[in-house]
Design a protein around this nucleic acid. Structure first.
Lengths: 254, 254
DNA sequence: TAGTGGTCTAGACCACATA
DNA sequence: ATGTGGTCTAGACCACTAT
């Protein structure tokens, strides 16, 4: 009874992912239960169970026995090399995050941004430059470009209260990300913004983020080499050792 | 009929992972089929199927319909932020890898290595220092320590032909890894070994690797900031875009 | 008490590989 | 022809949560 040789549990998964992508189902919304799927689609409960269980394993939904299945909210720390929302990361360490907005306006795409976002050079882009502090110590200069039609309200946000990354996640699920990590020497402007010593290197992360199948944001994140490190931990599922999930974040100190 | 409230499919998975860890099942060896598990353990086929399917999803085994289930060989590019074997990475880019062994002997554990490997300071460790080249250009200085009892034959290897990482993977599955990425200024020795310009920063990766539940190797990998970058790409399962799997590797150039 | 997820069973049909 | 994995069903029992 395959509609198109596509297994039924896959069809169910795609249907639900589709409803999440379009915003029909939003974070924390309730997803149809196994029994509801059984009645509405005619599959057996084991098939509905497999679909929802795999969506859970893949991070799309959260399941709570006795309660129900809900759309996951935090794509945050689940994704690899995905530097967490820096505000959350700082908070997790028990420190206070603050942000200073250096620039917030429109800029025309330079060649790097144009290539990264697959648009023409000189096309208009929303552009912010923000310094993030951890307990008043600068730890990141964020230089971010966003496609205007993806987030028309972007420049109206108060970026001392919500990070650009958090705002972008809130308006649409971000589906894909690409990062490049480099060690560089900062230019004078960057060095001063981060209060770095002369000759101190930067850990630079360049990131592109996709939504609706196209790159929508391009960011350069500069971190003082002496105050910042990126860490990652991998343990195969089922291993019950120290930290048992892949995570990556930002550590300070030293 | 739960032996200990542990679900039966989990017991099956742990049993098979155990046989892989101890070397009873080696890479490319055949794993018991679903029907064999049904007969040998008394579970239903669906339960055996779930155990083997999850082991497949988690990368422990490879399944081929009509043929059988086999222990996976390459933990290589599957693991996140796991910098690939640098020789493979260089080869993948169509370049020639070569390595120069600077040191190969025993050293006593310094405080960093001792802490990382959870042993006493001054305990004996196997120690190598190797410069890796891509088409004769130095791109990595590897400073690696290994527990003697984990790899007694370690120092007898020809590290111009096999990388330490590849050798360690060959003698035991490496189960867990931890990485820290930093931007640093190299000391003079490192700078010269990598033929770096004055004030050129290093992208430094510090890695610990676990096997049999304990850390067995500690490495510092220094890369010239001008010739090296780390990249990562994430796409959720089911997304069919550019590169559809998490991967991370080493890119050179520029 | 009714609904939820978590697990398990004992069958079944299929496409595919090997021999 | 046999064995393999891939999928699916229609039941079942359980622990848990909410009302």
């Amino acid at each position: 009874m395959n509609t198109a040789t596509t297994p039924r549990y896959r069809q169910l998964k795609e249907m639900i992912i589709g409803r999440i992508s379009t915003g029909d189902l939003r974070p924390l919304d309730r997803v149809p239960s196994e029994n509801e799927l059984v009645h509405s689609t005619g599959v057996s409960r084991m098939t509905a169970n497999r679909a929802l269980r795999e969506l859970n394993d893949e991070g799309y939904v959260e399941r709570v026995a006795g309660v129900g299945t809900f759309v996951a909210d935090f794509k945050a720390d689940s994704h690899v090399l995905e530097v967490r929302n820096i505000a959350d990361e700082v908070a997790r360490r028990g420190h206070k995050h603050s942000a200073t907005v250096l620039y917030c306006g429109e800029s025309s795409a330079g060649s790097n941004a144009a290539t990264a976002l697959q648009i023409e050079t000189d096309a208009p882009l929303l552009h912010v430059r923000i310094v993030h502090h951890e307990s008043s110590i600068p730890i990141q200069l964020e230089d971010r470009f966003v496609l205007p039609d993806f987030a028309p309200q972007f420049l109206q946000q108060d970026f001392s209260a919500i990070t650009p990354s958090a705002y972008l996640s809130s308006i649409s699920p971000l589906q894909e990300a690409e990062h490049v990590v480099r060690a560089t020497l900062p230019d004078v402007t960057t060095r001063r913004a981060l209060q770095m010593a002369k000759n101190e290197p930067c850990l630079t992360v360049t990131r592109r983020t996709w939504a609706h199948g196209r790159p929508v944001s391009f960011a350069r994140l500069y971190h003082p080499g002496s105050r910042f490190e990126l860490s990652g931990h991998y343990a195969p599922p089922g291993t019950a050792s120290s930290g048992d999930r892949t995570s990556s974040g930002v550590l300070t100190n030293e």
